[in-house]
Design a protein around this nucleic acid. Structure first.
Lengths: 126, 126
DNA sequence: ATGAAAATGATAATGATTATTATTTTCAAC
DNA sequence: GTTGAAAATAATAATCATTATCATTTTCAT
């Protein structure tokens, strides 16, 4: 039986609404200022639970684990200039259709990872 | 100046031709039987080098780092039944074209990760 | 108000990977 | 073929992210 926890609430609230895909470490550092005796284990424990419950998504970008409050299927773009991780609209249905053609298995989910230069960094360059 | 090393040769040879995307640990275990005093650090060091030289690819699947001798751009499929990681033909050009439409940045690379049931496991089920 | 179940905080433990360093191997110049 | 500097290795200590453990605290149905 799941019981309320102030810490879990704070972790979730710290994540919702942002699009910068923080790591567990970043969330911990930020929350620590508001809740000085928050434990790092509590952050990891709750992020795992929230992911299992489908309330947040875990993504791996360039080897690092990051968290995303957006649980709608979508992909991510990594900027090689500034390191930003940007949400990309969900083209997965179309992508899955392309990949499914001629493949003998059953594709149920897919995510794509794009790499390049983000709009901001393109502007600066030009 | 790069010098020849029997170990690096063995690591590369152990990887080429296979499609099961082994981890560094798996490669080390297999090589250890042939080269009893091979060091785990040597395996990691050389895999990093081979990747930098573009001779092998590193992929992250379900949180684990695996290695792929196929350096042509292509995607991967993870079977949730048997855990196999299967190479998928490169639809990335088409996928990139779709994703690039309406995106202000510049997409240079992309990889997709598909998840579902592989052909073999579909057969067993039916 | 009470107590069992759940969650936390502190920290030890784990697993994957990297750094360090003394020793060995490679290879260009002789 | 010998030599010596540069590169690579083996062994292992160190690091980093994450998880496990466990005593204490919090939640919440009764």
């Amino acid at each position: 039986m799941v019981k309320y926890s102030r810490q879990r609430e704070a972790i979730k609230n710290k994540l919702v609404g942002r699009t910068d895909h923080p790591t567990a470490e970043t969330l911990y550092a930020e929350l620590k200022t508001e809740m000085p005796n928050l434990s790092v284990a509590t952050v990891y424990r709750n992020l795992n639970q929230l992911e299992q419950w489908g309330e947040v998504n875990r993504i791996t970008v360039e080897g690092a684990t990051r968290f995303d409050p957006n649980t709608d299927p979508h992909s991510h773009f990594f900027c090689r200039k500034c390191g930003a991780v940007i949400d990309m609209p969900d083209e997965d249905i179309e992508i899955r259709r392309i990949a499914q053609a001629g493949f003998g298995g059953r594709i149920e989910l897919s995510t794509s990872h794009f790499y390049g230069v983000c709009p901001k960094c393109l502007d600066i360059d030009s």
